[in-house]
Design a protein around this nucleic acid. Structure first.
Length: 443
RNA sequence: GGCCCCAUCGACUAGCGGUCUAGGUCGUAGCCCUCUCAAGGCUAAAACACGGGUUCGAACCCCGUUGGGGCCGCCA
């Protein structure tokens, strides 16, 4: 049987890390098994759901590279895919239970009568056998069994009810969701039983915790996937990182793309322990993906951040800029960081702001002028030639390469760190190097 | 408070009764490279929560303790 997995967010906020994680695992499983990935919008909370958030969640998923086969925007054979458009379905089914005496009306709502001693145990794909009985569905104070609200007095279905109707009608085969839903599962099982339906397979995923081991929330900083995009993380990295939270491919595979992950994925290899979100590891993974990117793709990633810094990106051709980023090598863990580290290729302005030649000792200036003049006189403007020339000069004068190379670095980049400075000089071009040195009165 | 779940280095994890003097990755420290910083190479410190069982043998199985997480809404 074809597997059908779904992600069912409620549009009450942007797609956050936890939601992205759940969506990702559903996607992985659907793709791994060659099945369908379905997006269903659970917008029964009239007060908090908005169309804007629905849109945001969908574009967040798209950004992550999670494409769905059926959903509110593209339809499908088991629609509609928005709960607010399925109200008749919930009503009909609730009435059916009412007619059978399994549910009753009270104060405008329809409640399901919970009977004692019903076995609600199930086999979770990741957690294994979970034993429970309906006796556990107690009211917090009265200690008595608590009936389940099916339809609220505003006519909307409750989560635990709608999810059962939808998962069954949409022929969902695997319900993959956060571990916080384990305790909801018995309630849902009770309803499957009342309808005489075969429940889907359940696979609960470990929670994602912040550094303080508390459920990830706003106070842990960035939580929306868009915040990661804005910080310069690649979707491929966030995908890779999220996939590693609660799952391992085995064979010590840690860096992979979507295709590789979906080929390797196994629900049975999902972990049970809550996982702590580690920004350091995300940074590392992002750096790895950044390094693997071809020059032009990398350029497109960095451009927006250069623009954000107010740099005249349009003033250079792409080949030059891509060359600059190639020269940057593994420097920078995010596109944003890389943009900040490489601004001097785009413009001299930030260099001037960062460095004035004031700190250069007067005693060193004549030597520097001579050194730079020698460099600028180099017939062939190439990194190896410039370096060879510099080394020869330094050796002849019995000087330290460091003093001269560092001054050149400051004059060209305004920074104390950069790629090999002769490479930088070669890329900037003789004219630009002269211009910068002249500005500082160093040639 | 009740119910459920979990427990390997600081973090993510491998391990599924002997191959574990517990492996990998991030992070941390050191060394090499070197015009600086990344990258890269090498090395180091770093964990089976505790107590009972079961077994010839336990990180792996069972029980308890402790610790952590989740749920107990006419929110999802």
């Amino acid at each position: 049987m074809e597997t059908r997995a779904r992600f069912a967010p409620s549009p009450t906020g942007a797609l956050h890390i936890g939601g992205g994680h759940t969506a990702l695992f559903n996607w992985l499983w659907a793709r791994r098994t060659g099945g369908k990935f379905i997006l269903r919008i659970e917008d029964t909370d009239r007060a908090r759901s908005t169309a804007e958030y629905e849109e945001t969640i969908m574009s967040g998923m798209t950004w992550l590279g999670l494409d769905w086969d059926e959903g509110p925007d593209k339809g499908g054979p088991r629609g509609p895919y928005r709960q607010s458009e399925r109200l008749d379905l919930y009503r009909e089914h609730a009435e059916r239970l009412t007619a059978e005496g399994k549910a009753y009306r009270a104060e405008g709502a329809i409640l399901f009568r919970v009977l004692p001693d019903v076995d609600l145990s199930f086999d979770d794909i990741v957690y294994g056998r979970i034993e429970t009985k309906s006796d556990g569905l107690k009211d917090r104070e009265s200690e008595g069994l608590k009936d389940i609200v099916l339809i609220k007095s505003d006519g909307m279905p409750t989560y635990n009810y709608a999810v059962v109707i939808d998962d069954h009608l949409m022929e969902i085969t695997h319900v993959i969701r956060g571990e916080d839903h384990i305790s909801n599962t018995p309630k849902q099982l009770l309803l499957y039983g009342a309808f005489g339906w075969k429940p889907p397979r359940f696979a609960h995923l470990p929670m994602i915790l912040g550094k303080d081991k508390k459920k990830l929330s706003k106070r842990h900083g960035a939580t929306s996937v868009y915040e990661f995009r804005d910080m310069g993380y690649m979707p491929d990295s966030v995908f890779n990182f999220l996939a590693l939270l609660g799952w391992s491919a085995g064979e010590d595979r840690e860096i992979f793309d979507r295709r590789e992950a979906s080929a390797l994925f196994e629900l049975s290899r999902v972990t049970r322990k809550p996982a702590v979100f580690d920004p350091d590891k995300l940074n590392f993974i992002n750096q790895e993906h950044l390094k693997r990117l071809d020059p032009m793709a990398r350029l497109e990633l960095v451009k927006p951040f250069w623009r954000e810094l107010g740099l005249p990106v349009g003033g250079h051709d792409d080949a030059y800029l891509a060359g600059a980023l190639t020269l940057m090598g593994g420097r920078g863990q995010t596109a944003k960081e890389l943009a900040g580290f490489s601004d001097y290729y785009v413009s001299f302005e930030p260099v001037k702001e960062r460095w004035t030649a004031e700190g250069v000792p007067d005693g060193l200036r004549p030597g520097l002028r001579e050194f730079f003049a020698a460099l600028l006189a180099e017939p062939e403007w190439a990194a190896e030639k410039l370096e060879a020339r510099a080394r020869a000069w330094v050796e002849e004068k019995g000087a330290k390469m460091k003093d001269y190379a560092m001054t050149l670095r400051f004059a060209l980049t305004g920074m104390k760190v950069s790629p090999g400075i002769f490479e930088v000089a070669a890329l900037l071009g003789r004219g630009e190097v002269r211009r910068r040195l002249e500005f500082y009165g160093l040639c």
